[in-house]
């Protein structure tokens, strides 16, 4: 089982430690993992802003980089969802049948559904509130969307149950958007900021010390609010908790 690690642009630039934790975690659970060098971006920012065609060459580049792997695994649900949902029709216009969409996984999804580890050495004696990010929930199905009448499940909660000492909470509005939305955050800054503030406060009302989730982009947005208002809560990507002690 050969896994190609997919590190999105902003994780590369801002949160390399999330990439490092992902690599360690995948190694630890015994998969053969490699990083195709010089990755940049999947094209989601341009596409969500309305310039989908500008993502075509980046999509082709990703196809080339990951062609020799059985799986593509990345620590960013939204970017993974973009490749899975949108690369196929973007590449279709270039007469290319997308392969990545069939083998790409968010790292939580991959661990939960494919590797299925029964234990992890991680210890994290803290209260955390799970951030159920929109694309993770509604496109990758990492948890049951609150709108749907289907039995509750959460792949993130299942994975966190392997961590010793942790206490897990969820906000009242369990999967309401944090207001990031790519360029939405700067095109509609007032609404976006308000959504971010509301979301952080909802997480804080659980008594958690950390907000954790599968999407660094949402965490980055909430971190911006937390730092601006100097709020007593921190953000941490779920892989950093799962890889604690590795």
């Amino acid at each position: 089982m050969k896994v190609g690690l997919f590190i999105p642009c902003y994780i590369n630039a801002v949160y390399p430690e999330v990439g490092v934790a992902s690599y360690k975690l995948l190694k630890h659970v015994g998969v053969e993992v490699d990083y195709p060098i010089d990755q940049t971006c999947c094209g989601q920012p341009m596409a969500n802003a309305g310039f989908e065609d500008e993502a075509a060459r980046l999509a082709l580049r990703m196809e080339e980089q990951f062609k020799n792997y059985d799986y593509v695994v990345g620590p960013s649900a939204s970017c993974v969802a973009f490749v899975k949902e949108n690369h196929p029709h973007i590449l279709e216009k270039r007469d290319h049948a997308c392969m990545n969409s069939k083998k790409i996984y968010d790292i939580c999804e991959f661990l939960h559904d494919v590797v299925r580890p029964e234990s992890l050495p991680a210890v994290f004696p803290h209260k955390v509130s799970i951030h159920n990010s929109c694309h993770g929930v509604r496109e990758l199905h990492l948890s049951s969307p609150s709108e749907r009448n289907i039995p509750y499940y959460s792949k993130l909660r299942d994975l966190l149950s392997l961590v010793k000492g942790i206490e897990v909470f969820e906000p009242k509005r369990v999967d309401e958007c944090c207001g990031f939305g790519g360029m939405f955050a700067i095109e509609e800054p007032e609404v976006s900021t308000c959504m971010g503030q509301d979301k952080v406060r909802d997480h804080m009302s659980t008594g958690a010390e950390y907000i954790t989730g599968a999407d660094s982009s949402c965490l980055m947005h909430m971190e911006g609010v937390i730092k601006r208002e100097k709020l007593p809560i921190k953000t941490i990507h779920i892989v950093q908790i799962l890889a604690a002690g590795l």
């Binding site: 801002v14 955050a185 900021t193 308000c194 911006g224 601006r228």
Partner: peptide
């Protein structure tokens, strides 16, 4: 526009590509 209500994320000293 980001700075209206949020601090900018800090870039890492070393990117993942570099590391």
């Amino acid at each position: 526009a980001w700075g209206k209500g949020r601090e900018l994320p800090a870039f890492a000293k070393e990117s993942f590509n570099d590391m």
